[in-house]
Amino acid sequence: MTFEQIVFYFFSGVLVLAAVVVVTVRNPVKAALALVLAFFSAAGLWILLEAEFLAIVLVLVYVGAVMVLFLFVVMMLDINIAELREGFGDYLPIGGIVAALMVVEMAIILGPRRFGLAKVPVPQAHGATFSNTRMLGDLLYTTYVYPFEIAAAILLVAIIAAIALTMRRRPETKYQNPAEQVRVQRSDRLRIIRMPSEKKG
């Protein structure tokens, strides 16, 4: 076994194990952390493929931002695990059929006919100065510029929709406008009144 193979089997082993933990562990926070580990192992595999930009961005976006927000939500959930497990027997047949279908579909697509070693050649190794990032950028902003911009527009619409759906002015919030606070003058808040001094007794 070459060193690369050892690294590959290590990362894929950890990846599969972490993925299994995500769906089997009872505690949702631990499941989210296992998912982080899975992302990390996947990033390791991509580095092995010399796709360093994708690997680092996977860590940056999914581990650094998305999963933090996930954890943020999951940590605040008060989930009763026993209740979740109650209907397990009822859902088993349907779930089993769906899972079997997915396995069959994946077997059709990912089988040796399309993804066999003969179909996918070993990626060509590049020198240390080869910039994967530059190649991706060249492709993304020339050949695929329209799909890229359409995807960006769809995401923007999604952002606006999400904000529009959740934004509402609640009357009880004590929101303060900082500009108003900065502009405030003495005359707005302070009133000096003249009072005669106490009479001598």
């Binding site: 940056l60 581990v63 650094g64 931002a65 240390a128």
Partner: peptide, 14 residues
Amino acid sequence: VNAGLLFAMAITSM
């Protein structure tokens, strides 16, 4: 490394 800046960002985000 070529992507050093990205690497530093990804690691610090963890």
